[in-house]
Design a protein around this nucleic acid. Structure first.
Length: 832
DNA sequence: GAGTTTGAAACT
DNA sequence: CAGTTTCAAACTC
């Protein structure tokens, strides 16, 4: 379906992730960093990455729900404030696009061989940005440092740095640490990969997507073009790089900086750096903690940025998961912690909503769709590849990441072009599409994006609108409505496709705490655009309204949570507090899961719903009893016991998810949708409640908790949760009481009156056909008039000195007439 | 905070 | 599909 940009006023840019990687100065620390940065990004890179990652994590979490065992390789970029020229770092559009490019560095004695090879095993993450000519012979050279620099540009060009440790002596490591890859030229089309030790470019990517190895003795292309999934070729797509760093772990661990390269390819790429680790084949990387100052000194982190690296268990592919990425205060040293992660398995990795994996006070996890795996082809390393996953999670205040707002709306495939430049990212294997939309100064007051979706695809599209509202960054996420496979939990079910849905996730107000400087630079106009909270994204007829909350909402949220002194579990995109807690806000009828329903009643005056920690004791948080699990989130800062809803038990978690889906394919679908019968946006429980004793007037009732009246879907007994229940019911009750008083001897039992009342107020609000029922016409006015009639009848009977039985009969008859009239009026209104 | 109530989820 | 059990949240005291 064709996509249309409905909001020409705003210009969206898909911009590459910018990570500012400095050269490594510590030879003892084997580091492999890949980043491309731009001067404009500088310190904001991580925040941008974090924000994107937050969004991605949200999608991850839902991806889990909606998909099978496929690996979720979701990459995304980071919004930044550069010009449109920054959007495409490389433009590779060959037919023969490798799924993966592997930079293999085989350590021969004191030399490292840099090998470019493609690995079809990761076809789902094709490398589109860089292609290595297959004709180039493999050459082993002592080259461990490569520089990819823009062939033709400077100034605003982005720099991609790649450095990896040498297997040689520490001194060599240190010397080799001078890695710099400038991945984007000014025009974004040419990329050069050069050795840091030499000025000559090793690899140059042309605009056609090929890479020319000018320094062949240092670079060895192992494999080139790889078939890619048959998909419509869409140029100008923004593709994000997934990097896999495997092996070659130094004794001190590895540091990895993710480079979010953007490519015009339609598919994301996975770049695998394989370095032979002849010297230090550590399989399980011990926890490595370095100070923030060290990280900065090594050039791994730009100022104010922390990342956590979690290596996976040895028997698996070792993964380094950067879970937290925070902007620390300049005065406080920060730590980089490398923690073992056992659940990172390349192909079937489904990551839940962002949650901080650790509670380091000074570190926050940055979930990033970009998974960087550096694989080492050394003798010890084939199975010991490290996978680096930057994941979003709770963030400290001050990180722009925390300020991201994610709004999901149904989307179809094609992304809008035009003033709002929306860039589509399609994930090959999973048919996942991402769309990033970054507003630019030229944007108007609102962004309207129409996203189309291919029919046969299970897509997950995201339109990310990142705005920096002073201290607030907002991300708008677009999710597909009509996915053919498992829909996301936050996606409105097919039955409600005609209606709009929206979900707003409010990020933390990092800037509030004075860290705004580290926020991703975004054009002021773009910020203004969302400052009013009027951004709107629409997907075809399925319109999703994006509501952007004012920054103070976030601040309030944060303050509220901080006041509680307890961090809430992070949600897919979310709010982060200084304690690393996060929260999310769902607005509208957006697919609300169990927790959202339950917690909706706890909305604060400002509309923020604090995230609640679970208290599961027996379910291991792997059943839908657990709100965290039900929402696809990791438990974090919860009170649960024996919790398995975490990354360490990812396999078990995945099994649990699968089990839930087997029992109920809609288990992770939103329970609250919008009734299409009336055409209006009345929210209703898709399944309905089954209350028996609560009268649907307590939070036990999911409908009541969601603050929606019970509908025909409900199977509740004695329901009193009806539309406008208070006034109407009160009126009738008053009527009954008044009748009793007036007649004095009226023996009409309360139960009968209650039955009448129930008759009046409990009928299904909507028929199956969606027609309005007379019940809906029992407005306050009607009730009032009815009561007046009944009162008049009672008074008349009293004046007539009628007996009780007769008075009762007359009143009831009068009531019947009133009801009849109401029904007739309803029918008239229905026909007209 | 402990105990009870409640209804969804899970199980049979 | 219905009945029962399990579970965690909501509620009460």
């Amino acid at each position: 379906m064709a996509a249309s940009n409905k909001s020409p006023g705003a210009r969206a840019l898909v911009e590459p992730l910018a990570l500012d990687s400095r050269t490594l100065s510590d030879g003892d620390f084997s580091a492999l960093s890949l980043s491309h940065s731009s001067e404009q990004y500088s310190n904001n890179d991580f925040e941008a990455l974090a924000s994107i990652q937050a969004e991605f994590e949200c999608m991850n979490a839902e991806e889990v729900m909606t998909t099978d065992d496929e690996t979720m390789l979701l990459d995304r970029s980071i919004e930044s404030t550069t010009t449109a020229s920054d959007i495409e770092m490389t433009d590779l559009s060959d037919n023969a696009q490798p799924e993966q490019i592997t930079y293999s560095s085989a350590a021969n004695q004191n030399s490292q061989n840099i090998v470019f090879q493609t690995k079809p095993t990761l076809q789902r993450v094709p490398v589109s940005a860089i292609q290595v000519k297959p004709t180039v012979p493999q050459v082993s050279q002592s080259q461990s440092i490569m520089i990819v620099s823009p062939a033709g540009g400077q100034g605003t060009s982005q720099i991609l740095k790649i450095s990896h440790p040498s297997t040689a002596s520490p001194g060599q490591l240190q010397s080799l640490a001078q890695t710099l890859i400038t991945a984007k030229s000014a025009d974004g089309n040419i990329v050069q990969l050069r050795s840091a030790q030499g000025s000559r470019p090793i690899v140059t990517t042309s605009q056609s997507g090929t890479i020319t190895l000018s320094n062949v003795q240092n670079v060895k292309p192992v494999q080139s073009a790889i078939k890619r999934p048959a998909q419509s070729v869409q140029q100008n797509r923004n593709v994000y790089t997934k990097m896999i760093l495997t092996g070659n772990q130094s004794q001190t661990g590895q540091q990895v900086l993710l480079a979010n390269t953007q490519h015009d390819n339609q598919q994301p790429q996975t770049i695998k750096f394989i370095t032979s680790s002849g010297a230090s084949p550590s399989i399980a990387s011990p926890t490595k903690t370095i100070t923030f100052a060290q990280a900065q000194q090594m050039g791994l982190l730009s100022s104010g940025k922390i990342q956590q690296i979690l290596p996976s268990s040895p028997h698996k592919q070792q993964g380094i998961i950067v879970n937290k990425l925070v902007t620390s205060t300049s005065t406080q040293p920060s730590k980089m912690t490398i923690l073992p992660a056992t659940t990172v398995k390349p192909p079937a990795k489904i990551l839940p909503a962002p949650t901080s994996m650790t509670s380091h006070a000074k570190s926050s996890i940055v979930s990033n769709s970009q998974t960087t795996t550096f694989s080492s082809t050394g003798k010890n390393m084939p199975q010991n590849s490290q996978k680096v996953i930057i994941r979003q999670s709770s963030l400290k205040p001050g990180t722009l990441l925390g300020n991201s707002q994610v709004i999901r709306i149904p989307a179809n495939q094609n992304i809008v072009s035009g003033p709002n430049q929306v860039h589509q990212i399609q994930m090959p294997g999973r048919q996942v599409q991402y769309v990033r939309l970054v507003s630019t100064p030229s944007s108007g007051t609102s962004n309207v994006v129409t996203v189309g979706k291919p029919k046969s695809q299970t897509t997950l599209q995201t339109v990310g609108m990142t705005h920096k509202l002073g201290t607030q960054q907002q991300i708008v996420k677009v999710l597909p409505l009509n996915t053919t496979s498992q829909p996301l939990r936050t996606v409105v079910p097919k039955t409600t496709l005609s209606t709009s849905s929206q979900r707003l996730l409010i990020p933390a107000t990092a800037a509030v705490s004075g860290q705004s400087k580290s926020a991703v630079a975004i054009p002021a106009s773009a910020l203004n655009q969302l400052a009013t909270g009027q951004a709107v994204l629409s997907a075809n007829s399925n319109v999703g309204n994006i509501v952007v909350l004012p920054a103070q909402y976030i601040q309030q949220q944060q303050q509220s949570e901080e006041a509680k002194g307890k961090s809430q579990q992070s949600t897919p995109s979310l709010l982060t507090t200084s304690q690393g807690s996060t929260g999310n806000l769902s607005i509208g009828s957006l697919s609300e899961g169990k927790s959202s329903q339950r917690s909706s009643s706890s909305l604060e005056p400002n509309g923020i719903r604090p995230r609640k920690p679970c208290n599961c004791t027996k379910s291991q948080c792997l059943k839908l009893y657990c709100d965290c699990f039900a929402n696809g989130e990791f438990c974090h800062m919860c009170n649960c016991n024996n919790c398995s809803n975490n990354l360490e038990n990812e396999e078990e978690r995945q099994r649990a998810i699968k089990s839930c889906l087997e029992r109920n394919p809609n288990a992770f679908r939103p329970k609250i949708g919008k009734g299409r019968e009336t055409g209006d946006d009345i929210r209703r429980h898709n399944k309905g409640c089954n209350c028996k004793r609560s009268g649907c007037l307590k939070n036990y009732c999911e409908c009541y908790e969601a603050k929606i009246p019970c509908s025909a879907n409900c199977k509740c007994m004695g329901c009193r949760n009806v539309e406008e229940p208070n006034l109407e019911k009160k009126s009738l009750k008053d009527l009954a009481e008044a009748a009793e008083v007036r007649t004095a001897q009226l023996t009409l039992s309360k139960t009968k009156l209650q039955q009448l009342s129930d008759m009046a107020f409990r009928p299904p609000a909507m028929s199956n056909t969606g027609a309005r029922q007379p019940f809906n016409f029992l407005t306050d006015k009607v009730v009032e008039i009815t009561c007046q009639c009944l009162m008049a009848q009672a008074e008349e009977a009293e004046r007539s000195m009628l007996d009780d039985e007769t008075s009762q009969r007359l009143i009831i008859e009068e009531f019947g007439r009133c009801l009849k009239e109401i029904i007739e009026s309803a029918h008239k209104a229905e026909t007209t």
